[in-house]
Design a protein around this nucleic acid. Structure first.
Lengths: 110, 110
DNA sequence: AAAGTTGTACGACGCGCTTCGTAGTACGAC
DNA sequence: GTCGTACTACGAAGCGCGTCGTACAACTTT
């Protein structure tokens, strides 16, 4: 069984997490993971980039400690490390996810 | 009186804010602003870069909507837009500031 | 076994960001 | 007015990040 390295919860660094979440495509992945509570394979994400690039972004998220990746037969199941992140950086993930929601409201007089 | 352009609270974008706060030097500025509640001139920050670079980072923070900059005689007074950010992205700034605190605690059994 | 599916590894390219140095502007002090 | 201070503007250099293409590996299906 192939396995992939994940940082321990205590080893997750704010620098890395913020850098990871600064990318819109990676936030899109995180968002989709946060919506469905089931683990999702990489192919379940309809991203406007090639598979190579997709792989790269998933790796960045995993190495930052934002998601877990586990081989399941042919595929890789991705899961948000919501609890770990909440433990390490309370409120951070929820604030970012909530913020993205509100961003869709640019309707403004004028 | 010289003035500097600031984005309206509703125009502040999550993308830009996260990108701005992904830089350690800029978080350092934000942190220092959040600690002293008085407005601080650029020169009050002891940053390990030249003044040109310093100017650049302050500009990025201002254009992202994270700080305000107002000329006061010779200097520029910088202030954190904590309330505006709280309005637009509730909990985001506090979570990041709190997270930075916790990062300094890598003490871990083992 | 052969073919299809799912995702990785590696090298390359382009762009943007951080950094710097120099020159310049606005303001205060004298 | 002249000098010093505080910061900006602009151009240049370095390099890291996102992107891609091709080649490859592991597993499933037939």
């Amino acid at each position: 069984m192939r396995t992939l390295p994940h940082p321990a919860t205590e080893a997750v660094r704010l620098d890395t997490v913020l850098a990871a979440l600064a990318d819109p495509l990676r936030r899109r992945i995180v968002r989709q993971l946060s919506e469905g509570d089931e683990a999702q394979a990489c192919g379940a994400f309809d991203l406007p980039v090639t598979k190579s690039t997709s792989t790269h972004h998933f790796r960045v998220l995993r190495e930052a400690g934002v998601i877990t990746q586990h081989y399941r037969g042919n595929k890789i199941l991705n899961q948000l490390r919501a609890d770990d992140l909440e433990t390490r950086f309370p409120g951070l993930l929820q604030a970012i996810l909530a913020a993205e929601q509100v961003t869709v409201v640019p309707t403004h007089r004028g």
